[in-house]
């Protein structure tokens, strides 16, 4: 536990050791704002809620989270520091968790810094702050799911660019599997059960139902099991590929 916390601290500090972290956060805030106002018609809708803000998060994370996740293991393998880390008295699981939570905390900070939009909507009207809180939690959890996938893929390669592109690609599959256009393609030949499974893997469907204020146990289970599963695969990948 102590070792995991120490890894967490180092990783978290590592994000802020270069100006990159601040650039990331600024871009994230600028994009989420731009999407909300220009594409989500925040003002034109005339409704005091944050739907137009949250609806773009799955798409924003598609680019943003792999960028945060790509360095987690690829950098260690490239620089050879993985040999240093994995010969310290720390288990692979502890290292995986320390790194994951550090990156997740970084994403949490970026997300928390969007708070002016919450102030804005409260100033303009009387939104349901319960729904907003749940939506924030859901958005944060979804970011964790993207991150777990990205961390996993980062452990596969020494090249951060490859890690980024692969993670974005896999995340894209998870995202679009709920779109009607994709499902229609499968529906024409695949059995219904399979279509349901594909639809059920989509971040989009699970996330959207939560942001409307409906917390379905299935959505919670989905994200709650996807993250540990990815982290377990991450651990196995680190164990088997660290020396390669």
């Amino acid at each position: 536990m102590r070792a995991a916390v120490t890894v967490f601290r180092r990783e978290f500090a590592a994000y802020f050791s270069t100006p990159l972290a601040y650039v990331f956060i600024v871009i994230f805030l600028a994009l989420s704002g731009a999407f909300t106002f220009y594409m989500g018609y925040f003002f034109d809708r005339g409704q005091a809620d944050l739907q137009p803000f949250f609806v773009f998060h799955p798409w924003l994370y598609l680019v943003f989270v792999p960028a945060v996740a790509m360095r987690l293991w690829a950098e260690e393998r490239k620089a050879g520091t993985i040999e240093l880390l994995m010969t310290l008295p720390v288990s692979t699981t502890q290292a995986v968790l320390g790194k994951f939570f550090a990156a997740w905390a970084f994403l949490g900070i970026a997300l928390a810094l969007t708070f002016p939009i919450w102030i804005t909507v409260n100033y303009l009207g009387e939104p349901d702050n319960g729904v907003i809180l749940v939506s924030y939690l859901a958005s944060f959890t979804m970011a964790g799911a993207y991150l777990a996938i990205g961390a996993c893929i980062s452990a596969l390669t020494k090249n951060q660019v490859v890690a980024f592109i692969l993670a974005a690609l896999v995340a894209f599959l998870f995202l679009t599997s709920g779109l009607e256009i994709v499902l229609a393609f499968f529906r024409s030949w695949a059995p219904d059960a399979m279509v349901d499974i594909i639809a059920g893997m989509s971040f989009l469907t699970h996330f959207q139902s939560i942001t409307t204020g409906v917390v379905d146990l299935r959505d919670v289970i989905f994200f709650g099991s996807l993250i540990p599963l990815c982290l377990f695969i991450n651990k196995v990948l680190v164990d088997t590929r660290k020396g390669a």
Binding site: A79, E83, L84, P89
Partner: peptide
Amino acid sequence: RRLVGYLPEGAPLYGD
């Protein structure tokens, strides 16, 4: 690992 001090080949370090 607790008992051992190890300098890996090439002395990899966290450069940042």
